[in-house]
Amino acid sequence: MHIDPFEIRVSDDAIDDLRRRLRATRWASVTPSPAWQQGTENAWLRELVAYWADQFDWRAAERALNRQPQFIADVGGQRVHFVHRRGVGPRPYPLVITHGWPGSFAELHALLDRLCDPAAFGEDAEQAFDVVAPSLPGFAFSPAAALPGASAWQVADLWASLMRALGYKRFGAQGGDLGAGVSVALASRHGSAVDGIHLNFLPTSYEPAVDAASAPLTPAEQDYLREKAEWAAAEGGYAHMHSTKPQTLAAALNDSPAGLAAWISEKFRAWSDCDGVIERRFTKDTLLTNLSLYWFTGCIGSSVQMYWENRLQPLRFAAGQRVSPPVAFARFPREINHPPRSWLERVFNVAQWTDMPRGGHFAAMEEPDLLAADIRRFFRRLRQ
């Protein structure tokens, strides 16, 4: 496998083009309604777009991103961008962490600081990790999949090959959002190499077989499935669009940075533990670093393609099918779903379960200390 060092270098022309487009935004007329009730609030979006055009410093963000050691690998014909950060400690444990949508590898940086160099945060250097944080196919600097079918299952195969090429015969996996699906697929398909997985989200396509006679749904499971369906009806329009008409959406969002900002930023507000005030959790610069990665790489269409693929190849488990590597689950209170432990135990050996005191969907950004501590606690028992 060929691996090359990588550095982000966005051209001045691309930055100038973005600013021109932002300043030329053709704003939609809207019917008055309570702020955020019908989606991204217009006045807030105008303020963000103006900041993006005139104050946001991409070059500073680029320098910060490039402080992470980045590489490009050819994995079976698929080019994969990844951060590979070595741990500071006597025996760092290898861990592959996978981001989700609408995030990117940039959302993991605070978490990597704490996992790779725990002593810098007052923790035991013995608990350091070697972290590999790949960009999913079609996200940021990982090109779109060359062929259809790149669901969580196929991405798990890519990650297993990448970890072997980096010299890791055994490793752990962690993820939220789409990354949780990849981690589940890794444990299911590559259990001989994966010691265990840590999740902070349960993929919506996860579907264990339910035998109504021998193992009927519990009241807690019934409540969860009902709440999940109600959430999908009220809040899941984005996912339905991603998984049914991704190319229609891509044509609009790839041409309008203001539209892209509206589509993505609304999720950072709705899914985080911010009490409705997005900048309690995320600064404009943080939001715009992530948005700029989507814009400069033109990846919004290819990023949502994975929803289509996961719909066609869900994480479905047959009656009696078990996944052998142990699982840890960190349940954050403002996450978009809250499965009961029994729902995971239908398939997994749940070795650790943590109800977090605060935090939402973007746990690595919102609560990196809590998440890092939970990851360390789980993998402490699996280190060899």
Rank of each mutant, 00 (worst) to 15 (best):
P134V: 05
M356K: 03
R9K: 12
M241E: 13
G175R: 09
W159G: 01
W44Y: 12
R316D: 00
P143I: 06
T204F: 09
W353E: 00
I278N: 05
L225N: 09
N42D: 14
Q222R: 15
D13L: 12
D4Y: 00
F139R: 06
A156D: 04
K169R: 15
G196H: 06
L65I: 05
N200R: 11
G76K: 01
E367T: 10
A24P: 00
I264F: 05
K228I: 00
I3K: 09
P357A: 05
A252K: 02
D369V: 00
Q222F: 03
D117P: 01
Y93C: 04
A60W: 09
C274I: 04
Q321N: 01
K245G: 02
W27P: 05
G167D: 10
P148D: 03
A50H: 09
E62R: 10
I375E: 10
G172P: 08
Q247V: 06
H109V: 12
V210N: 14
Y168L: 01
A140N: 15
A193N: 02
R322A: 10
S135F: 12
Y294T: 04
L48Q: 05
D12S: 14
A251N: 10
Q68F: 02
G179F: 13
S188A: 15
D157C: 01
L291M: 10
R383C: 02
T289A: 08
Y51S: 04
Q222A: 12
L370T: 08
F201G: 06
G77S: 10
G103Q: 00
S243F: 04
P219Q: 09
L186I: 10
R322N: 01
P333A: 01
A180V: 01
A351Q: 10
D57H: 06
P340Q: 10
T244C: 06
I336K: 08
W343S: 00
F296Q: 13
S142W: 14
C299P: 04
L312A: 09
D273R: 00
F6T: 09
Y51Q: 02
I300V: 14
A234R: 13
T244N: 11
Q127H: 11
G181S: 14
A251S: 05
A120M: 12
D374R: 03
I8R: 08
T98H: 07
R346G: 02
S142A: 13
Y93W: 08
W271M: 07
A193H: 10
A251M: 02
A180R: 08
D369S: 15
G237F: 12
Y51T: 07
Y238A: 14
V210A: 08
T289Q: 10
A73E: 05
S272T: 04
T283Q: 09
A24K: 11
F378C: 03
T204A: 15
D13A: 15
A252Q: 02
G237L: 14
G138F: 15
P340N: 07
S188N: 08
R170T: 14
I375C: 13
A43E: 11
L199K: 09
V304H: 02
E266N: 12
